[in-house]
């Protein structure tokens, strides 16, 4: 199937926003970095990523003006994704408002737990919509799971970038970088393993053109893990975390492109006809 770039970019950005939210909220629960300015910057970037993702998704549509019709079918995957983007942005706004009003520790903890749930759910939901019986290569739980783990690798790299470039208390900084680098190391390795399992289980590496896309994804996953391993040893400034973000994009976007390239309909008589079978092509 042709790569649907607006959808690939939507799920890249929404998933990245989700997992940056996850780690930012985990930090709120752990209390490693207590600088609300850093948290505010993270929340603003999360909201921007989610909104840009939503805009990218809308670029895929021909009649955005009819989108309100989605209210008539609230169980559809597209509606679920739109709601999740809206909820993530809303949570960021609520957090930002409450940060300015000295929210209580209890509220901070409760909203952080909500943020972690939203972050995980949005990265899974953007992939679960592709599970359909008409697409045998997509119709597996490994599909949304791969969306989730590659998004977690990208989100971890983003979080590492934020933490590593944060100028604050030296002890807290070192501890935070150590935690963020562990997140990157673990999510990168887990993502690499899960996408390999998906590719093997579905047998989708044999088709032409796909190994290159899979390689981009796999190397990106390992890149995030390597950056995580390297960043944990020393404060490195912006260079290494930036490489991590690039690897995160490669992991996440690479998988989404690979998935579209691996998409083959059960049967395709008219939409993408097999020319060899058409009367005029063979007579």
């Amino acid at each position: 199937m042709e790569i649907q770039w607006p959808l690939a970019i939507f799920t890249l950005l929404a998933g990245g926003a989700g997992w940056l939210l996850v780690w930012s909220c985990v930090n709120q629960l752990r209390g490693t970095v207590t600088d609300d300015k850093l948290f505010s910057r993270e929340l603003i970037v999360i909201a921007i990523l989610a909104i840009c993702g939503g805009i990218s998704s809308a670029m895929h549509l021909s009649h955005v003006d009819r989108m309100m019709g989605a209210l008539s079918h609230p169980a559809s995957a597209i509606f679920t994704e739109a709601v999740m983007v809206g909820l993530v942005v809303l949570l960021c706004i609520v957090f930002l408002v409450l940060l300015r009003r000295d929210m209580s520790a209890g509220t901070r903890k409760a909203l952080s737990i909500v943020g972690i749930v939203f972050g995980v759910v949005i990265s899974f939901a953007t992939g679960s919509g592709y599970m359909m019986s008409s697409q045998p290569n997509w119709n597996t739980l490994l599909m949304p799971l791969s969306y989730l783990v590659t998004a977690s690798a990208f989100g971890s790299a983003l979080y590492l970038l934020f933490v590593d470039t944060w100028k604050g208390d030296e002890a807290a900084h070192g501890k935070a970088v150590g935690e963020a680098s562990k997140y990157a190391l673990v999510t990168g390795l887990v993502a690499a393993v899960v996408v390999v399992i998906y590719a093997i289980a579905q047998g989708v590496l044999s088709l032409s053109g796909e190994p290159a896309l899979f390689a981009v994804c796999f190397i990106g996953c390992l890149g995030v893990a390597a950056v995580g391993a390297g960043a944990g040893k020393a404060t490195t400034g912006i260079a290494l975390p930036s490489v991590g973000v690039i690897c995160g994009v490669a992991a996440s976007l690479g998988f989404r492109c690979f998935m579209f390239a691996a998409g083959t309909s059960l049967l395709s008589f008219i939409a993408t006809p097999d020319a060899a079978n058409h009367f005029f092509a063979t007579i």
Binding site: S62, L266, F269, A271
Partner: peptide, 26 residues
């Protein structure tokens, strides 16, 4: 008149018997 052009139905059709009308974008 209600089609937003997401083409999700084309992906979901097991037989690929839906077609995209470029003129009306539906």
């Amino acid at each position: 008149e209600k089609c937003i052009g997401c083409r999700y139905c084309m992906m979901a059709c097991p037989y690929g018997v839906r077609s995209w009308n470029e003129e009306i974008k539906a």
